[in-house]
Design a protein around this nucleic acid. Structure first.
Lengths: 360, 360
DNA sequence: GTGAAAGCGCTAACAT
DNA sequence: ATGTTAGCGCTTTCAC
């Protein structure tokens, strides 16, 4: 490269020279290596401070073969769920001195794999949120991404731990709640067909059906956004159901809004439930009955899993102790990869009640 | 370091050897340098593909003195405003091949400066969202952070551009709207005293007062969260005002919720406005009249400013053309640093109407 | 057009 | 305990 471009900031050698020691010593001091004479260490520190020397991370990264950074790949930075995961990961990682590089695929799932790979090569590991990615592609991608932690996904044949939410259990709780209130005709306003978490809800509902033969349960295809919920009102009304389970709080709120405009009263005429318990859920009118997902905790747990991977403490077991906020966590199989499972909590608010007396 | 640790992934030298060329040539090919014989280039590319060679970013970073990454410092990753800024920056930057490293100070403002510095040293520049940071500290910090782009802040004496939102204008529009509807007693449910954007609203309201001497306008100290809004109801009712301007949509929604519980009808008994136009604003009951802030655009514009800084095209002028979505942008002074100003748009929905006939 | 070699700024053997 | 010296993996002069 250039011959000693003098544009450069103050580097380790400047400190070494000025303090009258070798590069190695400065490096040792800066890294808190105890094997340095306290006197000298003090002098070096003083010199560094005087020169306002701060180690260049890129140089360290190259020399140490690590970046102290992890990548978080999300399909949509505008989605409250992934925002919360990101926040959880970011804060937990920060506590351990790690930073987060974000990779937002903007719902362009064809870019997901590339983005994930790029992120991985710049970081020490990657937390992957890819609810729509095909199982095959994921499996193929996994080895090249290791160390990787999956959120709401699982993969065999690789050492990638997962942090999952038991959406199936959550929706069963919701359905049971409605049935307890007296509803006999239920409808699930479905999420995107390709969504893995939607699949889990569906499976949960199948289980529910089996144990509740007398209950009618329709599945109404729909999406995951506010607008989707708003636009689902026709289908919901046509279904004849009195107990509606929306895919998530967003769609529930959209539905609520649309029903309100039509003069259909919730919960008097119809009960509606959400899923996730996003912050707004308790402030809708009426407040939303939902299955609370401790999604920030999911992010934090994803970091803990990543930390284990990074520390080489690969093993499984009930190592980290997550789930402080009313959620339960179960350690998966004892062998790696570990799976953490968070169970949603039923939160009953004003949007559910007994069905109208007219029966129906 | 270790003597040729054979753990290393396939590197540039592997490709060079296998293709029978020098490192330099491989590097040239990988970087699209045209001065390579097409035949050789093709062979190198084939070899690279065969070996699944991908350049190590850290090595490149060190050699090129840049990381193609920018840092985004936010005070709270849980705040919708900063989430949107982050999203705007991230997506715009991604289009230009840059990535984003996030630095969330978790509202611990004492950490903000340190975090920003850390982020800056790992990146090519930093977008700083620090609404609570003292002006003096910001000024002191600025030089060491350059290139830096400020969001909703400005600083003299440094070449740091700003992307601002004219909160003062927005709140004046809101106030004027209420007055037009017939309200004569207004109240502003204030944001955090230390918030810069709150200051701008306050200043705007002062201007408004001067031009509307007949209007009563009270300022009710409060905060910025949903809960703050919820808890402000007492003060709001006590104020005797009929037209309420909340600090933002979040507090407006909290207030709406609380008023609803008290049986105070909006907008029949009281009009309420928000600020920001977050996605939920149109789905509240009633839908929220607010001043729409194109906050994602703010993030995108912040990236454009950053890109100019990075490209050395330091100058000002109306370079980038932002503000597609109904917002206006004005280029600041012709000299650098440039300031982009986004003006909120009044969005009238169902939460405002004429005051009750009883006068008051 | 291509290669040799000198770094980028730092860390970590290894030797003393 | 400290210094010497190789690198980390890549880019980029500079000479051919």
């Amino acid at each position: 490269m250039a011959k000693r471009a003098r544009t450069t900031r103050v580097g380790i050698s400047d400190v070494a020279t000025k303090a009258g020691v070798s590069l190695a010593t400065v490096s040792r001091v800066m890294n808190g290596n105890l094997s340095v004479d306290p006197q000298i260490a003090k002098r070096v520190r003083a010199t560094a401070a005087e020169l306002k020397y701060l180690p260049n991370p890129t140089g360290r990264n190259l020399a140490r073969g690590k970046t102290d950074t992890i990548g978080v790949v999300v399909p949509d930075l505008g989605n409250p769920t992934f925002q919360a995961v990101l926040r959880g990961v970011s804060r937990a990682a920060a506590q351990d001195g790690y930073r987060v590089l974000i990779a937002d695929s903007s719902e362009v799932s064809s870019e997901e794999a590339i983005l994930a790979g790029e992120a991985r090569r710049r970081c020490d590991g990657v937390v992957l949120c890819a609810p729509r990615m095909g199982a095959a592609e994921l499996e193929e991608l996994a080895p090249s991404l290791h160390p990787m932690v999956l959120v709401n996904r699982a993969t065999n044949a690789t050492g990638s731990p997962s942090v999952m939410v038991d959406y199936g259990k959550g929706i069963q709780d919701l359905a049971a709640h409605l049935v307890e209130l007296g509803h006999t005709r239920l409808a699930y306003v479905a999420g995107p067909a390709s969504s893995a978490s939607h699949g889990l809800r569906l499976a949960g509902l199948e289980t529910f059906k089996r144990s509740h033969p007398g209950i009618e349960l329709k599945v109404l295809p729909n999406g995951s956004t506010f607008e989707d919920g708003y636009n689902s009102a026709d289908a919901v009304v046509a279904s004849g159901a009195s107990g509606i389970m929306a895919f998530n709080d967003l769609t529930a709120m959209g539905l609520l809004s649309s029903l309100n405009e039509r003069g259909i009263r919730v919960p008097a005429d119809m009960s509606v439930t959400g899923f996730d318990d996003i912050p707004f859920a308790r402030y809708t009118t009426p407040a939303l009955t939902t299955a609370a997902v401790p999604i920030v905790d999911v992010g934090e747990q994803a970091w803990r899993q990543m930390r284990e991977l990074l520390n080489g403490t690969a093993g499984g077991g009930t190592s980290a102790t997550p789930g402080q906020a009313g959620s339960e966590v179960a350690a998966g199989t004892t062998a790696a990869p570990t799976t953490s499972i968070f169970t949603p909590t039923l939160v009953v608010r004003g949007s559910t009640a007994a069905p109208p007396a007219t029966g129906r």
